[in-house]
């Protein structure tokens, strides 16, 4: 039996001082698995990914999240990241004045430090980055620019995947990583995900479309609706969604 990465049990969560968004969500992911979550707009997909990564705008009111034997709910956002959780944002932020390479190095070294390991030698780090850049078909001048500032939609998404590859997490949550990508960018992003994927880690993809799933084949597909997983199946479920829409399935 393979190692369990995350176990989400009866998770209920609100927007702070607002509505309940997740209404008893269950999801278990083991090492080596790729899961896809699909669901109508506004069903709580981004909320789920932000809750997992510890965004302060949401609060968990009930349920439990076990992340590799640790209670995720009790952990700060930076601690979650350093313990191996990575979320690629649906809308990555532009941060002027923070250099992309410096940012990557800060993030990488934060994790090293957390794990009690040496900080990266700058030259070795540059080599590591170069390798990942070529995998994603990104030019190295991206590194000199400010974090996502003035990046196109596709470039932002690739930059998320670059961060993922550099940080090499245990579990990645990809929130609509495929939206706004042209075919070439979609291929590059998929190549990044496939290069990352191993028997020891896991992927949770949030998507609306089959087209990403053609490149990165999920083992399980779940439908999220009204704050709950209403249906789970294998990759054929995604094709059904494509054909029938969500309404029929959720019914």
């Amino acid at each position: 039996m393979s190692e369990q990465i995350i176990d989400i049990k009866e998770l209920k969560a609100d927007i702070v001082d607002g509505d309940q968004i997740l209404k008893g969500l269950n999801l278990k992911i083991n090492a080596g698995e790729i899961h896809a979550i699909m669901g109508p707009n506004g069903s709580g997909k981004s909320t789920l990914s932000k809750i997992l990564s510890g965004h302060p705008a949401y609060e968990i009111t009930d349920g439990a999240i076990d992340f590799q034997g640790k209670d995720l709910v009790e952990m700060e956002a930076d601690e979650r990241a350093n313990s191996g959780l990575f979320m690629a944002f649906q809308y990555p932020l532009e941060i002027a004045g923070v250099n992309n390479l410096e940012f990557l190095r800060m993030a990488y070294n934060s994790k090293q430090k957390y794990l009690g390991l040496e900080e990266a030698d700058p030259l070795d780090f540059d080599d590591l980055i170069e390798e990942k850049l070529s995998l994603l078909n990104m030019k190295s001048d991206f590194l000199d620019r400010n974090l996502n500032e003035g990046f196109s939609g596709g470039e932002k998404k690739k930059n998320e995947i670059l961060q993922m590859l550099v940080l090499n997490p245990k579990l990645v949550v990809l929130d609509e990583i495929d939206s706004g990508l042209d075919v070439d960018a979609l291929r590059a992003v998929a190549a990044g995900i496939n290069a990352y994927k191993s028997e020891g880690n896991a992927v949770l993809m949030i998507t609306h479309y089959q087209r990403l799933l053609d490149y990165v084949k999920p083992d399980f597909v779940h439908i999220l609706s009204g704050g709950k997983i209403v249906k789970s199946g294998d990759s054929s479920l995604a094709l059904e969604v494509e054909k029938e829409g969500y309404d029929l399935l959720a019914a």
Binding site: S53, G54, A77, D78, F86, L93, G97, M106
Partner: peptide
């Protein structure tokens, strides 16, 4: 939050964003 979610400590994140300003 974006910086925290990449493992950067809160104090460091605040310092980075302030410097970036």
């Amino acid at each position: 939050f974006y910086l925290l979610s990449r493992g950067i400590k809160k104090d460091d994140a605040l310092a980075m964003l302030t410097l970036s300003f």
